[in-house]
């Protein structure tokens, strides 16, 4: 059974006349890393909100079709129970703090307190997460006084500590500098290696090419393409749906269009170097 099965899903926000999601069909498999890409307004965030159950539990509106989390319809899940199944981290680092805690340690513990865990166990789990994400040095700081990147990592830690099976992460790096972005991606990779299922909305194609297993490409509320990262990101056709491609792939495609066949389309820096080296050898240039 798939982790998440979505069948003929359409959704309309209240007071809006048109659907933001049209007839989506998809299944999410355990342990895979999915990147959701597409232009602004393609419905990516709405898609995440459906998976996390905020639609229809918080955002009203009209949800049609089926969405099953571990075989149970989203409408039958309690929001409270979903928090242990699906973790959710989003763009704005500033609204992702509880607003009632004085230290990062207490902030990360907040979710576990809400789940009613024993104090000793909470402390142990928080300490583990602090160590795993290498943010022990933040633990005594006031969450209000952190930088954007630090806040975002604390937000991730606060979710990870609850040990959800699925992580839905919506543009976590859009307000961060390159350093912050890299640190967030390190954490996401760590989670993937722990076997978590990851659904990530992201614009930075180079990072997606490097980390994601599969791509879900959205446009105008529809899923227009889905498949393995290497297939979708090396296909020139993807550009037609309002998405970008990694610069390395663009380079490979351009080479091919210039009749210089590299053998395959590279997606990452490492791949580019290796295919170019092979190509130069083949052409007798090196």
């Amino acid at each position: 059974m798939s982790m998440i099965t979505i069948k003929n899903l359409s959704y309309q926000y209240p007071i809006v006349e048109t659907d933001v999601l049209h007839d989506i069909n998809i299944s999410i498999e355990k342990g895979e890393f999915y990147a959701v890409i597409g232009s602004n307004g393609a419905g990516k965030t709405t898609f995440c909100n459906v998976i996390r159950g905020f639609i229809p539990h918080f955002y009203k509106g009209d949800l049609r079709g089926e969405i099953l989390i571990e075989g149970k319809d989203i409408r039958d899940w309690e929001l409270g129970d979903l928090s242990q199944k699906i973790g959710y981290v989003f763009q704005n680092p500033f609204t992702q703090i509880s607003g009632v805690k004085e230290t990062v340690f207490e902030e990360i513990a907040f979710g576990l307190e809400n789940l009613g865990l024993e104090v000793e166990i909470i402390k142990e789990k928080v300490e583990n997460v602090l160590k795993m994400l290498e943010i022990e040095y933040l633990q005594e700081k006031n969450p209000f006084e952190l930088s954007g990147g630090q806040k975002q990592r604390v937000a991730l830690a606060s979710i990870i500590v609850m040990e959800p099976d699925i992580l839905v992460i919506d543009e976590p790096t859009s307000q961060l500098d390159p350093q912050g972005t890299e640190e967030v991606f390190k954490i996401i990779e760590l989670m993937k290696n722990k076997g978590k299922t990851i659904i990530l909305v992201e614009h930075k194609m180079e990072l997606i090419a490097e980390y994601a297993d599969r791509i879900i490409l959205m446009q105008d509320g529809k899923v227009v393409k889905q498949g393995l990262t290497k297939d979708i990101l090396s296909d020139e056709d993807t550009l037609q749906y309002g998405s970008a491609l990694p610069q390395y792939a663009l380079f490979g495609i351009e080479m091919r269009n210039q009749n210089m066949d590299l053998g395959s389309i590279p997606l990452t820096e490492k791949q580019s170097i290796s295919v170019v080296q092979q190509w130069m050898k083949k052409e007798g240039l090196a």
Partner: peptide, 10 residues
């Protein structure tokens, strides 16, 4: 008056 209908609808 300045609040968005989207927010008010919630």
């Amino acid at each position: 008056k300045k609040m968005s209908p989207r927010y008010l609808s919630k």
